[in-house]
Design a protein around this nucleic acid. Structure first.
Length: 510
RNA sequence: GCGCCCGUAGCUCAGCUGGAUAGAGCAACGGACUUCUAAUCCGUAGGUCAGUGGUUCGAAUCUACUCGGGCGCACCA
């Protein structure tokens, strides 16, 4: 990673002046003209040194240049900011190190368990599930990439009232009777008439669709198994022993208010049945017992009211942390008009239909492109168009282009004499962006913002296309060709990495 | 009524722990194909970052309130 590397170098160079433990933070200036990288440390130091930032910056710049200019880093100050400019040789050697030696990420001892999709097997998956699935799957890939110990589960709600109603609805449909009050409607209910176990059939269909999208889980965890194994009773006993539950109005309550919830919640209803919440505590308790120290749940926005009580339960039971990522809902459009969906009447567009229409690559890209907490407006017609309006092709095309050039380039292109390494504008900006690849990956993983990798991919592809047009490769010769070929190889690796993290294919020709 | 998310260009959205002159794609307009694949590139135009205060050397970003949109407020799952 380039930012921690620069931070280390600059902090060391300034160690005589800086307070102990002070790490210079490195950022990328918005205006490329200012520098390749920058630090605002003179502002942070102003109080401590009792001097004005521009004055501090001047002194620091002098020190940096004295110690680091030989390495290829030159500093300058502007309005208190310290801007860093990297020499071509420096950039090149960092790229070589990054791609040839590989990158090591800081270690974390936590064991992570992610839970996502989590759909009732009472109907087909919809586009919202597709979004949680992709957000979760890309995050999983990101965490693995930076070396985290991570497992993933899809929790199947295969128990409870909804399942009963669902079975009853299928049964009624089979006999030609009226669907029970609050039951399930739609053509798919009729189609399940011949199936031996409609619940299993739905689970199978979920597996099939998610499989086609290349969304992977280490386990599909059955809610029913928690009932059967007695895990729910055991958990209720444990809560009782710890004094975390009490009886009132004929029901058993959890003291969630002691852990930050607005009100206490029912665990066991007056009729003796468990609430969904009680079973979910048992599930989270199972995760904790299996040794996971960091839990991540991804839910749809319609469940956000549920966050506090589950957090309360996890807090009451363990030291493990729980992060909940809320995916905002997806509004489908077709031809610019909103597609209204009604679960009651069974009028829905299923995830599978969308997948059939636009394919896994485009679907994944559209679902991951926007931040999880932005409402997503998704136009089916737009995604169907296999043209320039469709950003996934932009990135894939960049990859295909590079593959074709590499294919045509004869041999490895010889070794590059770094003595006379100069980078033209297009080469330089591509190189600088590529240098930040692993910073982007690390930050995206750390902050659990999987959409950032999509944004980065597009910008890297853009820089490549510009480079491609202005810097001929096969038509150039000697050192210039060797340099461009090398840059191309690294860029291809970078784009391929990104596409891999996004779970999108990296075609070698288009 | 209470809580969560959102409000940035005509449209869809980026904007990383608060930083310098606010970014991309699409749409609009003008250019570039005897080429390494034009699924591309280059350029022009487009803004009161919903609004008003506050914190700060500095706010699209933090904070309070107002307005607007979405979603929740069960002994449902």
């Amino acid at each position: 990673m380039i930012k921690p590397y620069l931070s280390e170098l600059v902090s060391d160079a300034l160690s005589a002046t800086l307070p102990e433990e002070f790490k210079v933070s490195i950022e990328v200036p918005k205006q490329a003209g200012h520098g390749d990288f920058a630090t605002n440390c003179s502002f942070q130091l102003a109080k401590h040194l009792r001097k004005a930032p521009p004055q501090i910056a001047e002194g620091l710049v002098e020190e940096i240049n004295e110690k680091l200019s030989a390495k290829g880093i030159t500093a300058s100050s502007l309005g208190g900011f310290i801007n860093l400019k990297l020499s071509s040789e420096f950039i090149w050697s960092r790229l070589a190190s990054q791609f040839d030696d590989g990158v090591t990420f800081p270690e974390h001892s936590e064991k992570v368990l992610m839970e996502y999709v989590c759909a009732n097997p009472t109907g087909p998956l919809h586009i919202g599930h597709g979004r949680w699935a992709v957000i979760g799957d890309v995050l999983r890939r990101l965490l693995l990439k930076v070396g985290r110990d991570v497992s993933t589960e899809n929790y199947i709600n295969d128990a409870g009232n909804q399942i009963k109603l669902f079975r009853a609805s299928v049964e009624a449909s089979k006999k030609g009777e009226a669907i029970p009050e609050g039951g399930y409607h739609g053509a798919y209910i009729n189609e399940l008439a011949d199936v031996e176990d409609p619940v299993q059939a739905m689970i199978d269909s979920h597996k099939k669709v998610l499989g086609r999208m290349d969304v992977q889980f280490d386990d599909w965890f059955s809610e029913l198994s928690l009932h059967k194994s007695g895990a729910v009773d055991a958990m209720l006993d444990l809560l009782g022993e710890k004094g975390l539950s009490y009886e009132s109005e004929g029901a058993l309550w959890f003291r969630s208010t002691d852990y930050g919830d607005d009100k206490d919640r029912v665990l066991k209803k007056a009729d003796g049945a468990y609430t969904y919440f009680a079973v979910d505590i048992a599930y989270h308790s199972s995760k904790i017992n299996r040794g996971y120290t960091r839990l991540v749940d991804i839910w749809g926005a319609d469940h956000h009211g549920y966050i506090n009580r589950v957090k309360a339960a996890v807090k009451a039971l363990s030291d493990s942390s729980l992060d909940v990522i809320i995916g905002q809902l997806v509004t489908l459009f077709r031809d610019g008009e909103q597609v209204r969906m009604s679960k009651r009447t069974g009028e829905i567009i299923t995830l599978e239909e969308v997948l059939d229409e636009i394919g896994a690559d485009a679907l994944r890209f559209f679902m991951i492109q926007k931040s999880a907490d932005t409402h997503l407006e998704f136009d089916l017609q737009l995604a169907t168009q296999q043209n320039s309006e469709n950003p996934v092709y932009y990135v894939q095309y960049a990859h295909a282009r590079m593959c074709r050039i590499l294919e045509k380039a004869e041999g490895p292109g010889g070794t590059l004499s770094v003595d006379d390494l100069s980078l033209e504008d297009y080469e330089r900006s591509l190189s600088l962006s590529l240098l930040q690849l692993y910073d982007e990956i690390y930050e995206s993983a750390n902050q659990m913002q999987s959409h950032r990798i999509a944004t980065y991919s597009v910008s890297l592809a853009k820089l490549f296309h510009g480079f491609y047009h202005h810097c001929p490769i096969l038509k150039s010769e000697g050192d210039v060709q060797a340099k461009r070929l090398q840059l191309l190889r690294w860029t291809q690796l970078g784009i391929k990495d990104c596409l891999g993290l996004l779970g999108i294919t990296a075609p070698e020709s288009m």
